[in-house]
Design a protein around this nucleic acid. Structure first.
Lengths: 367, 367
DNA sequence: TCCGCCTCTCGAATCGATTCGAGGTCGATG
DNA sequence: CATCGACCTCGAATCGATTCGAGAGGCGGA
């Protein structure tokens, strides 16, 4: 028992001359244990180099692992390149702080795609950790994805409390969202009020394939992204016939790409561009600069998110959304659902974005 | 048993008319189970809505949790604002892919600082998850920190395989690093070769307090950051008497701050600035622009990292380090250490940075 | 027909800690 | 002096799955 193997609680107990149960009490600190005994146990633990109760055993017994899963819809790098995601993650961290829980990064690419892993030795290793089998007490879904349905189904089957940020996952799952549609509408209205009649849109990825290209009716109809669709609808409320481009990601690069196409031809160039994220907007601004198109003189640009894009010269007109607060709300919802008395309150929340008018929008130049 | 509670493997087994052991075999797929039986078990599971083996129980029995911990030295937001960290994280993900393991985010603020959490109800909750008690199979330390020693001690006591990225943690812990000192020296030498004699340095945080201010001897002597110290030494090999500023973080903002001070007075202004990160360098460039100091005409700037700073107009002269490869190497080291046959090979690796000469360095203007 | 072997299934032990009720000791009180 | 608590400590059951050796059938060959 006390061989070279790591000591267990019973080893410590034996050494201290008490029973395992008493040792356990001594460690968890809560139970009625005399000071003398506690000291003895702690001393024995120190002598044996006991590092504390095994978290695996503890979590089996307690039924809680102290881990909250965060499901990202993309690979880690891609997700974290988006400042909005990072802010939400940070908010989640704040929100679950009272739980003292850790954050486990998961992607919903699905275990099915990679059920087991063959090691070099030809041994079949543990199936990859996924939302189907991760030892989590609760899960926060960040951003919707085509696989959302399957992910939610697995979570429901496992009975794991779930909260979704931006993505309708089902009536029993609290959703933390913002006024995507109305906010975008307000941004578009701002452009209309300035006198714009010809606005183009740069959308977030619409389909699972993240198709980059012109914004076609087919693409729009087949959208699997609530966020992109809602923002699109909001824009269409003001500019029903707006055309545009669909980006393959929310990044400056993609915005640049889209901007180049939209601004290329001075004859057909729109007087305003509504980008569905600040990163895309920043790319559009860069494209404008590249092509020598003045902002806001010749083209106005509106973004979405309200992040500080490092190094951006402009004060972007955008819809400022409370990303950190969203994350925090999600975290708090998790805490509530995990509380003993129970989270009867689904506690969905919809935050409001604020239109920040910067220096990238102005009346269109008479042509 | 099969009440409202979630079904267990034995429930499934009972329903399928087999023993629990057989059911287990059927699920793990590996054992010699007849197809008929397997189908029966799977069917029973489906009927009962069994979601697969409980990961907590499984990890207790198997002794593996399938989770790899990543220890960050700061809060999540701060860490992930640094593109280098994100790249490394991504590399780690790639590296441990064969494990099929998940990534658990941990910070080394220490459980001691927040041993237990009082809930609103006055109930004492589970101690916060930390490196001391997280159910991880291995850990990757990202960046060194003052608390490194304690973190490593806890890990060692627990017998958890550990790999450190940038930070000497002990002889038994593989370290993945880069040639901080020599790389910086080469960057500095490049400046010297161009004719610079008066270079200033902007360092990464040196002490636990992340003091922002002039680079004093005391600060240097008390440095707890290997990375910053090494890069500083490299610079000093070429410019022994260089003065500078210490930043409170690796960010554009901090670089801007430092740049403003260093470039404020045209009389004492250095002809070159060596920044210990690209983010800091970008800030310095911004400061230069603000103050109307031409780059590289009036001041040359060298960075470190080789990240693409979004929106940066310049092609920064910098030392390109392979961040993703570093992460991947760390992940691979973890895989090796976790392999059955055993990772006798500590497998420390030191990568080499490459000097990329952009357009931010040029000979000093004769004054 | 009988034997041996091979394939599939089962029992029981185990992973390490937690929890709860039972029991034991000791001091104080009537 | 006997009894009642109060306060500790202990035993045993439990969390849910995995694993390994043993045993039971079935089938082909002699």
């Amino acid at each position: 028992m006390s061989e070279s193997a790591r000591p267990t609680l019973s080893d410590v107990a034996a050494r201290a001359g008490v029973s395992a149960s008493t040792a356990s009490l001594a460690f968890s600190g809560s139970g009625p244990v005399s000071d003398a005994t506690k000291q003895r146990v702690l001393a024995a633990a120190a002598e044996l180099g006991y590092a504390g109760p095994d978290p695996r055993a503890r979590s089996l017994r307690r039924g809680r692992s102290g881990i909250v899963g965060v499901v990202l819809e993309q690979r880690v790098r891609t997700a974290f390149l988006d400042p909005v995601k990072i802010q939400m993650l940070d908010g989640i961290t704040e929100g679950i702080a009272p739980l003292g829980a850790g954050l486990l990064l998961l992607t919903d690419v699905g275990a099915a795609d990679l059920p087991v892993v063959d090691t070099a030795d030809g041994i079949v290793a543990t199936p990859a950790l996924s939302v189907e089998n991760a030892p989590v007490d609760a899960v926060v879904l960040v951003g919707c994805s085509p696989r959302l349905g399957q992910t939610v189904a697995a979570l429901r089957r496992r009975g794991i409390p779930t909260v979704a940020i931006e993505g309708a996952a089902g009536s029993d799952i609290p959703e933390i969202s913002i006024d995507n549609r109305d906010a975008t509408r307000r941004g578009a209205q701002h452009l209309r009020d300035l006198g714009h009649a010809d606005a183009a849109i740069v959308t977030l990825p619409l389909d699972p394939a993240r198709t980059r290209g012109p914004l076609t009716a087919a693409l729009e109809a087949g959208s699997t992204s609530d966020t992109a669709s809602e923002r699109l609808r909001g824009a269409r409320e003001v500019f029903p016939n707006a055309t545009g481009r669909s980006a393959a990601a929310s990044s400056i690069e993609e915005g640049l790409e889209a901007g180049r196409v939209l601004l290329a031809d001075p004859a057909t160039r729109p007087t305003a561009i509504i980008a569905q994220s600040d990163l895309l907007a920043a790319g559009v601004l860069q494209a404008a600069e590249e092509l020598g198109v003045a902002v806001p003189g010749e083209v106005s640009v509106v973004g979405f998110d309200g992040i500080r894009v490092d190094g951006l010269q402009h004060d972007l007109t955008t819809l400022v959304q409370p990303s950190v607060a969203k994350g925090r709300a999600a975290g708090e919802a998790v805490v509530r659902m995990l509380a003993e008395d129970g989270g009867d309150a689904p506690a969905s929340r919809c935050f409001t974005s604020v239109l920040h008018i910067g220096d990238t929008t102005a009346p269109p130049r008479a042509r």
